[in-house]
Design a protein around this nucleic acid. Structure first.
Lengths: 218, 218
DNA sequence: GCCAACCTACCGGGCGGTCGGTAGACTGGG
DNA sequence: CCCAGTCTACCGACCGCCCGGTAGGTTGGC
């Protein structure tokens, strides 16, 4: 997660703004890991401070507060999603290729490091209202991007009788859930998981047999 | 959620055991709602007490502690899953019918009342180790039940080149995610959501075209 | 000598949980 | 018909603890 350094500059509003960015990146990385493991509310500032070898007061040299720390991590995760998933997928012209890009890239990201991305969806209620509105808005945009892609597939005749909203949410659920069961040191390797999930996602929305095509309603 | 009453008798180990079961059911119902909305750690005993018109001390007449309350709710949710999803599905002999029963029944349950079922997956770290082991074990059994169903489909030749474990987890993710976006008062109605999700789930795992059947590896 | 990078010591407050008490309904003996 | 005794269902006050956050240093490299 070396990209965290640059991300911190981008979300500078949450940090003191003068401290060593490498050290701050290390702190944010550890915070994300602990928030992910124990949950935001169950994690104390002391837990994070201890993990980076500081006292609580020492940690406050680098952060403005617990909620700002959470928002910075979630903003970073959202930036990551934008840069690694949404932007590359947007460059795909074919709707089906675009869908495959979304799913495989998002799944890949989660197998690489799920901390920040998982916090992004699980700890929304820990944010201040304004920050929460910001994050939720960006998440909504993402789901709409997927729904639009499904709608484009429908216009091509490749999808019949599927509500794009339900489809988009279902795919997102499938992808996000990966962080709950995938372990880098487990039986399954990341390439296999990404490929399999992508195949399932595409199969879930594409109609390939007459049976579904003939009976779009019900 | 009237079935809560009987569930409470079943999980009597967590309550004082003498108090009015109706009142206790009301308390558990409210607790589940608030845990669901704010999260376990962000919810104080006072929040729950106030919601049922008691003081904190008064509430302790009915419950043994915060963690026991959580475990009771999760046990109830797991009982619900057993009775409404797993048992009925087990009675389906055909693997495909069984899969459809699992998905549609589980999805239906979530559209009806997601509180307890959502707590079941999101608040595991709030439990004592022994209780957590209990719940995780039951959840693992459920995923294995789905994986076995997928394996049976594979043995029938209806599924090719799909890892049953990945498939089972992905379907579970799709289903559980419903509680995050479905609103009973929203644009989509429950029947539509259940039907659509079930169709997607089946499509995701069944191979219906030659393309997939010819190339199981990769 | 200065400033970045920390620390010790502390604050107010809310937490989960407990304790002693009590209003009021109910019960049974005279 | 009464009243002592008992039990259910609660409450006010309190406990120790830990939380997020801060004030005011101290230290070591430039």
């Amino acid at each position: 997660m070396t990209a965290l350094d640059s991300a911190l500059h981008a979300t500078g509003r949450t940090a003191t703004g003068e401290a060593d960015p490498d050290r701050r990146a290390e702190i944010y990385r550890n915070a994300a890991r602990i928030f992910h493991r124990k949950g935001y509310h169950a994690t104390s500032i002391n837990d994070i401070a201890a993990a980076v070898g500081l006292t609580k007061a020492g940690l406050y040299y680098y952060i403005k507060g617990k909620q700002d720390l959470l928002f910075a991590i979630m903003s970073f995760a959202m930036d990551q999603l934008d840069a690694q998933v949404i932007e590359p997928a947007r460059r795909e012209q074919e709707p089906q290729a675009r869908l495959e890009a979304i799913v495989s890239r998002h799944a890949r990201l989660i197998t690489q490091d799920s901390s920040a991305l998982t916090i992004l969806v699980n700890e929304l209620e820990g944010l201040l209202p304004d920050d929460r509105a910001d994050i939720i808005g960006r998440q909504r945009d993402y789901v709409e991007f997927i729904a639009d892609t499904l709608a484009a597939l429908r216009d091509e005749g490749k999808v019949l009788g599927l509500d794009p909203t339900i489809g988009a949410f279902s795919l997102v659920g499938m992808i996000l859930w990966i962080s709950r069961w995938y372990r880098a040191d487990g039986r399954l390797d990341a390439d296999e998981v990404v490929a399999e999930v992508t195949r399932m996602a595409v199969a879930a929305v594409l109609n390939r047999n007459a049976e579904q095509a003939e009976d779009p309603d019900e």
